[in-house]
Design a binder for these strands. Structure first.
Lengths: 157, 157
DNA sequence: GTAAAGGTTAAAGTTAAGTTTAAGTCAAGG
DNA sequence: CCTTGACTTAAACTTAACTTTAACCTTTAC
């Protein structure tokens, strides 16, 4: 009634479980004040923050990356349009990057299907190029190749 | 010397740890024969299988999905070009799907940055549309909204 | 012939992003 | 008053995709 929301109300409006919201608070992604008796009260702008978190996750960002982006916003008041714009633009850049990566993979694969791929050494499948790129959360060390590992004698399949 | 590879050799050529290769064998992603003394020997075409697994992971597929795709290949002999082509094409379709999803997100976001986003109800950020879509491995129930959760009274931020 | 390097297993540990459980406090309706 | 539903915490559990550890055997090199 004073404009703030209980955890249950935020949960209902965002579609997240209360446990997830508490987890986000612990991680510092969202902030809450407390009532006398210790219950959380959220400002309405957490709805936007949560929405941002969820969209960023869909794109494959980890909570840690999202935390960094959201650190640009104030936690003690609702961010203004300019502040949100800065965050959204940085987010869109990440998205652009991921789209370019995926398109590169698709191009490589299309060529690979046509080429017969008789040599693993020359096949794009085994030499993705940008070994350092990672697509969001996943196994650790997924693409930690060294030059050694990519090199070596020719191998035919 | 007989054309087969030890686990260490496969590890070196693929850039994966031997432990990961054993793990993949347990999951059925790759197959090995055994020497008298129980050591694994891999046919050279596991290199291509492993390469495929890694590329598919980069795109965000889970090992389970990759398992399904690889199940189309024989494990007792090197797959031929036609067989690899079938698998690669199904993989490319998944990739196309993900690219389309990301592009949709980017379009939405671009509009959102320009629009001022004064109402969360109408803002694309809070109503991504295809709530069922998932981008690869991540938290469970990430996008499990119900109609209820998306609806409700207007909320301004 | 022996030591080092590399192979084997089963079982436990790791990280992310939460969920579930247990045990309890608080608020609202009848 | 008291019960029901919403809230609190800390701690344990979950899943994926591996890695690490421990205890042991085999192969290679000198």
């Amino acid at each position: 009634m004073d404009g703030t929301l209980t955890i249950g109300e935020v949960a209902e409006r965002t579609g997240l479980a209360p446990s997830a919201l508490r987890f986000y608070e612990r991680r510092g992604l969202i902030a809450a004040t407390r009532t006398e008796s210790g219950q959380r009260r959220f400002r309405r702008d957490v709805l936007r923050r949560v929405a941002f978190v969820r969209v960023a996750q869909r794109v494959g960002l980890s909570l840690e990356e999202i935390e960094e982006a959201l650190a640009l916003l104030p936690t003690d008041r609702a961010p203004n349009r300019e502040e949100w714009g800065r965050v959204s633009r940085s987010w869109r850049d990440r998205l652009d990057e991921r789209i370019r990566l995926l398109e590169g993979l698709r191009t490589g694969l299309t060529e690979c299907i046509g080429c017969g791929c008789l040599s693993l050494q020359r096949c794009w499948l085994s030499n993705p190029g940008d070994a350092a790129a990672r697509l969001g959360p996943g196994p650790r060390f997924l693409l930690g190749n060294t030059a050694d590992e990519v090199g070596g004698e020719p191998v035919s399949v």
